[in-house]
């Protein structure tokens, strides 16, 4: 076994173990850590492919920003947010059925691809500057400029959609908080200095 294939096996196992942890674990923190494992594994896979720049970006953006954001949200909501008591009415057949279908599918996939894995497509040997910042930049802003520009629409939709979904509940008269004086903007414990006109603090939303 060459060091390269050892690195591949380690990173692949890390990816898969992380992915399984993310899906299976009941604690959100553990799931986030599983995701972190997957991301690290993918960064290692990029290294193996000599895409050092992508590997660094993967670590900075995903491990550095996305997972941290997840952990922040978990901290804000509390670690037990979203976990609900085991429901009694859970189907007895569905999990084994889904698992069986997945196994059948995976077997068929690997059976079909067995021959292909032995004779992989011969790609052209990458140039020496493959994976450098310059090469990635040329690829992104010159060769694939059109899809890159198209992602602007994707990002706008994501931002506008986040606002549309994330903004407060509207059209719900009974529970709607109508803010009549600026003091009510404060959620949380009302300080002595805020407490000018209204004696009792509002209950938090």
């Amino acid at each position: 076994m060459t060091p390269g294939s050892a690195l591949f096996i380690v990173s692949a196992v890390l990816c898969l173990a992380g992915a399984v942890t993310t899906v299976v674990s009941r604690s959100p923190v553990r799931a986030a850590m599983g995701l972190l494992g997957t991301i690290l594994g993918i960064a290692l896979l990029f290294l193996k492919l000599r895409a050092e720049f992508l590997s660094a970006i993967q670590l900075i953006v995903y491990a550095g920003a996305v997972v941290v954001l997840f952990v922040f949200v978990i901290m804000l909501l509390g670690t037990d947010a979203g976990s609900e008591p085991e429901s009694e009415a859970r189907s007895k057949i569905a999990p084994p059925l889904a698992g069986g279908m997945f196994l059948a599918f995976a077997t068929a996939l690997f059976g079909l691809l067995g021959g292909a894995i032995k004779t992989p497509t011969a790609f052209t040997v990458p140039s020496p500057d493959h994976g450098t910042i310059e090469a990635v930049g040329t690829e992104m802003f010159q060769n694939t400029l059109v899809p890159f520009e198209l992602t602007t629409a994707l990002l706008i939709v994501a931002v506008v959609g986040a606002i549309a979904v994330g903004r407060g509940r509207q059209g719900q008269k009974p529970n709607q908080r109508v803010i009549k004086n600026p003091q009510d903007f404060y959620v949380g414990p009302v300080m002595e200095r805020d407490n000018v006109s209204q004696p009792e603090p509002k209950e938090s939303v």
């Binding site: 899809p147 992602t151 939709v157 506008v160 959609g161 549309a164 509940r169």
Partner: peptide, 20 residues
């Protein structure tokens, strides 16, 4: 892929517009 995601992402959010 990029176009499919642009289209779908907007639709996901349009469905969830009625928060109540």
């Amino acid at each position: 892929f990029v176009a499919l995601e642009t289209m779908s992402l907007g639709v996901y959010c349009m469905i969830g517009l009625r928060r109540s």
